[in-house]
Design a protein around this nucleic acid. Structure first.
Lengths: 231, 231
DNA sequence: TTTCAACTGACAGATTCATGTCAGTTGGGT
DNA sequence: ACCCAACTGACATGAATCTGTCAGTTGAAA
């Protein structure tokens, strides 16, 4: 096995945020521990955020590895525009991540390719996602961890209701965010505007994706489906 | 010089979209022509879009080289969201670039990191940039090449006017695009809503960034400046 | 048909690289 | 004080890579 391949392999071993011991990596890849130390040194030197602690082991901070890419100028512009828009979003996690991503990319580009040089003068002021979206991040988190939520919701007519839901999907409509969920209270699918959710708590229950209650099932039940991101 | 460094150097030589001969690259890097052929083969094999034509030379299609990066899941999500939003934009160039970028990234991620796996259920329908923005691409192009434009503009009160402008900057306001320009007709800075531009032609004149007529000068002349992309 | 420059294959020598072994040090935790 | 596992340095050996040279082929354009 070539060294390059082994370096790649090592990154793969960290999937799932695992803590690894040098000794175990060495055994797994059938090389000596010394070689692993050298490999890790190489990886860190090329910017892979592996962190080691004496007496503990290694972890990889950012688990998605992007190999070298080449971009056109327009692609870099699109990337920059998109990240600026997301930075302006009300979802604090996403906004922060967008900032970090821009910084990473900028740090890595030579002066001559620096984002700002290729921006043909373009600024983004104030994202369009309106209203209080303080729960957007929590909901996205709940979707990925399948946490049942208990929400208070203000209907369009102003009346309040509280529901227990299994959040399935989030949609962005250009100026509003919605959450499609299985509503335990109504025993059917429901779509909620996130800016009208006035309270949101995790119940502690973890739901499983039961047949008939998934987002795919919801889509199946709809007549004609709008094409995402084409208009 | 290590080979890896030379490979990197070769990419740098292509800056500015230059057409290069293998012989010249060889001379510049003080290696044999055969070695350059081998280097180019290696680069192409690792995905760098260098194209060679017999009897002509080499060009690099996508001139921005992004070294390996590691991303967190949220960063990948932010990237995906941003690109989906840009894909929905009315600027055909940017939208297409965003699509290409998404495809590039998806092609390069291992199955386990594939964008769709990390999207905690998120769709983008219909970008908020409203109205006819058919000239957005043309204006961005004119900004980068410093082409003077002749535009027909419909004021908010409905009256028509035609102007000769030096486009300087484009701003995105969440639901509308504007272009800040030096207006030759009025001999002052003016801001135009791009969806209200009913015609747009290049005059053929290339302007230079004269002191007092740059975007920086425009910003200097403004009282308090809104912070870009923070809300 | 000639020219140009990209391309390909083979081969041998040089040199760099990678690796294991050994013998340490360091910092945190128990 | 002891253990653990990350770290570091040195060195020799062997493997892999890299390179130039030479002798071609190919496709396009003049």
């Amino acid at each position: 096995m070539r060294r390059t391949d082994r370096l790649f392999e090592i990154i793969q071993l960290f999937r799932g945020g695992r803590l690894l011991l040098g000794r175990d990596i060495a055994a797994r890849l059938e090389v000596s521990l010394r070689t692993i130390y050298r490999d890790i040194e190489t990886l860190v030197a090329s910017g892979v955020p592996i962190e080691g602690e004496r007496g503990v082991g290694y972890i990889l901070r950012a688990p998605i590895f992007l190999p070298p890419l080449t971009l056109t100028h327009v692609e870099l512009e699109a990337l920059h525009l998109g990240m600026q828009i997301v930075r302006g979003s009300k979802d604090a996690d996403l906004a922060e991540a967008a900032t970090q991503l821009l910084l990473k990319i900028d740090a890595v580009l030579p002066d001559t390719s620096r984002v700002t040089n290729h921006l043909t003068g373009l600024s983004v002021y104030g994202f369009a996602d309106s209203g209080p979206l303080i729960f957007l991040g929590a909901i996205r988190h709940a979707i990925s961890t399948r946490m049942t939520l208990s929400i208070a919701y203000t209907r369009l007519d102003g009346t309040e209701t509280s529901r227990t839901i299994r959040p399935l999907h989030v949609e962005y409509w250009g100026n509003a965010w919605t959450c499609t969920a299985w509503c335990n209270t109504r025993d059917d699918f429901r779509v909620f505007r996130i800016d009208r959710i006035s309270d949101c708590k995790e119940t502690g229950d973890i739901f499983s994706l039961t047949a008939g209650k998934t987002y795919a099932d919801y889509l199946d039940g709809l007549p004609p489906i709008p094409e995402p991101a084409h208009g």
